[in-house]
Amino acid sequence: MTELDPIERLLPATLRAALARRELIVRRPVAGARHGVHRSPRPGVGRDFRDFRAYAPGDDPRRLDWRAAARSQRLVVRQTESEDELDLALVIDGSGGMSYGEGVEQKWRRAGTVAAALTSLALRQGDRVGFAIARAGGLALEALEPVARRDRLRLLGLGLADEPSGDCDWSALLDALGPSLRRRTLVVAISDFLDPGGSSAGEEGAAREHDEALIRGLTSLRSAGHDVALIQILHRDELEFPWDRPRVIELEDPRGRRASVEGPGGSLRADYLDKLNAHLRWLEQSCERGGLLLARLLSDREPAPQLLDLLARLAGQPGDAVMREGGP
C-alpha cells in the first residue's frame, strides 16, 4: 500500500477544492514588509480607496486625482489601502492529549488539517508562515521563523506526520515564539486546551494557574499587536462522555502527568461534564476578555465547513463571540 502523501493526508482533494477560491483575510490591519493582500495600518499602494490629501511636492503625479482637483480647485492625491503581507505563526499542541480519536476523527489529524489549510492559503497569497510543534516535552522550532517558501507546507506535513505524545510545554513554546515575531502576526494556537499544564497531583488550583498562564501569554501577544486565534479541537467523546454504564473504566492521562482514574462510567459522567463545561466557559470568558478569537471544532465534523467558518471569522464577519460547533 502506498503511503499517502502527508499533504494529501492533511488536505484531501475535496478540501482543497473547497478552499480554492478562499483567502485568508484577517479583520485587523496587518503591517507586512511586502505587499500582500491584507489591510495595512499604513496607506500605500493598493487597490482600495482610502482618503484624499493635498498634493505635496514629491508625490507620484500618477496618484493625482484630477476629478477631485477639479472639484476642489486644488491638487489632490488619492490615497489607497496598502496591501501588506501577513505573517502566520502556527503553534501546535503535539501532546498525547491530541491523539484521541480514530482515523479522520482523530484530533491530531484535524489539527493538522486546520494548520495545513491555513498554511496553504497563506502561502498562496504570498504570506509568510512559520510553525512550531510542542511534543513529548520538547519543541520543534525549526520552522518557527515565518517565511513565504512553498516548502513550508511540506515541512508542516512532515512535522505533523509523527503521532502526538507526551506533554506540551506551552510556556517554553510561547517564550520561543515571542522573539520570532518581528511584526504583526496572526498567531494561531491549535490545541484542545483541556489541560495545558498541571501538576501530577491533579490539584485543580494548580491546573487553573497553568490555564491562566497560557491565556496571559497569548494575551500578551495580543497586547503586543499580534492577532491571536485559539483553535480548540475536541472529540465528541470529550464533550459527551459516552461511558455511562456501570462497567468500570480506567482513564489514563495521555500526557502522562496525572494518575489514572478508575470507576464505573456511570458514576463519573455527571461530575466530569460539570467540570468540563465550567472549564470551557472559563476559556470562553478569558478569550473574550483578552480579545482572543476562540474557535471550537469537533473532530467528527466535516473540515471544509469548519474552515470556511474559521476564515469568515478571521475576516471579521459577524457571528457568535465564540465560534463553536455542536459544543455544550
Binding site: G96, Y100, K107, R247, L251, E252, R258, V261, D271
Partner: peptide
C-alpha cells in the same frame, strides 16, 4: 475482577471518582 476498559483520555483532569474506587 472485571478488567476495566482502559481509555487514554485527555479530560482526566475533570474526572473525580465518587466512590473510593481503588486506583
Amino acid at each position: 475482577r472485571e478488567r476495566p476498559q482502559t481509555i487514554r483520555f485527555a479530560g482526566v483532569r475533570f474526572v473525580r471518582p465518587r466512590e473510593p474506587v481503588v486506583t
